[in-house]
Design a protein around this nucleic acid. Structure first.
Lengths: 205, 205
DNA sequence: TATTTGATAATTTTGTTAAAAAAGTCAGGA
DNA sequence: TCCTGACTTTTTTAACAAAATTATCAAATA
């Protein structure tokens, strides 16, 4: 039997889905609350009944996306023993996440300076989870004697993530577009694999 | 005895120096050709006698800075045998270069999209030289048997530079300012040292 | 009472234009 | 050849109205 709360949640979900599609297609500033309401055949005022304002709606969608991303990581990384394999899986997943939702993130890209803190809370949360998950694999590898034991696995993983991110940043270079073109994706991936190789090797002993 | 060409060069130098000070102090868009001329007690028209336009003047100053930077690297890296020491020297020098001239680079930062190609030529030239210099040290180390021999040293050095840059990018985080604050500089430096350690270790064998 | 809406208020963005500032030119002087 | 003052052209800024969009709310509905 469906309760009132259930119905509310379902409607909230529908709104989130429609909003996601619009944001993804047109970007944050180009999608209007009217259009989102229109896509759902409901009044704009109703959106404000479920969400306090546009930015909060955007943040709610972002939160949902982040959860989906993290669940993918959690579900799979637990099964992977080899450190290098784990890192490669993380790289692939993260990359797809960004590429598939590129347009959606224009809000974050274009308003970098003055963004609601909640966005950065989500970003930090993702980073934190990634560190935790990969850190666990690293510790397991250390315990199995495959790599040497480091005092602070989180710090090392963090360093690796920063380094990998640097490969992406560099690949975007000074080209017109801010985001790497399709043609560079493979190059980024290849370089990251080499970097991971050297890095993991540097942990052995 | 001083030739006409000498005199020209001296005046050009004076202009470059004055322009550098103004750009550094006020940034590109906020310094006017009038101010530069004023600082030199010469007419604005004379600036246009020595340089075709404002952006070319800026580029000329940039070129000069780049040469000074590269000379510092060349003069010192040749003397350093240890790969890790060489990389650390490069990191320090590069970092100082950016920090000391931060305001000067606002033109590049703020106009990222539509910049004269010459700027990127300089950037590429710097990167190319850095790769060459560090690549040489790496080859020497490989020949001495301290690290394993890699097929493409340039590629590996490039990868390292990208990774190190990623550490800086990450340190800037989502804080208000685009450039790392003084308080983060040490942190960046420490992380880079750790990364270099792991990276160089990953090349041994 | 919880949900929904049309009408309306408040705010932000966009477009227009005029004034000011700065870039860039040029005829002519030393 | 080097240099300048006066001039023209281009770019930036400010002000303000019009349009678009966000956000609110009293009233209707279920």
């Amino acid at each position: 039997m469906s309760t009132v709360a259930d119905q509310q949640d379902i409607k909230r979900e529908k709104i989130l889905e429609a909003a996601y599609q619009q944001f993804l297609h047109y970007g944050y500033s180009k999608t209007t609350m009217n259009e989102i309401a229109g896509a759902l055949s409901m009044s704009k005022a109703l959106l404000y009944y479920y969400f306090p304002d546009k930015s909060q709606l955007y943040i709610a969608v972002t939160r949902k996306l982040a959860n989906e991303y993290l669940n993918t990581l959690k579900d799979n990384l637990a099964k992977i023993k080899d450190l290098r394999d784990a890192i490669v899986f993380q790289i692939d997943t993260h990359h797809n996440f960004i590429v598939n939702n590129y347009n959606f993130f224009d809000f974050i890209r274009l308003n970098e300076q003055s963004l609601p803190d909640q966005i950065w809370e989500i970003v930090d949360e993702i980073r934190q989870s990634e560190m935790q998950l990969l850190g666990d694999v690293m510790i397991a590898e250390a315990n199995r004697g495959k790599i040497r034991i480091v005092e602070n696995p989180g710090e090392i993983v963090s360093l690796l993530l920063d380094a990998l991110n640097g490969v992406r940043v560099a690949a975007m270079g000074h080209k017109k577009n801010i985001f790497p073109k399709k043609e560079y994706l493979d190059e980024i991936h290849q370089k990251r694999l080499i970097l991971v190789d050297i890095f993991v090797r540097g942990l052995k002993n």
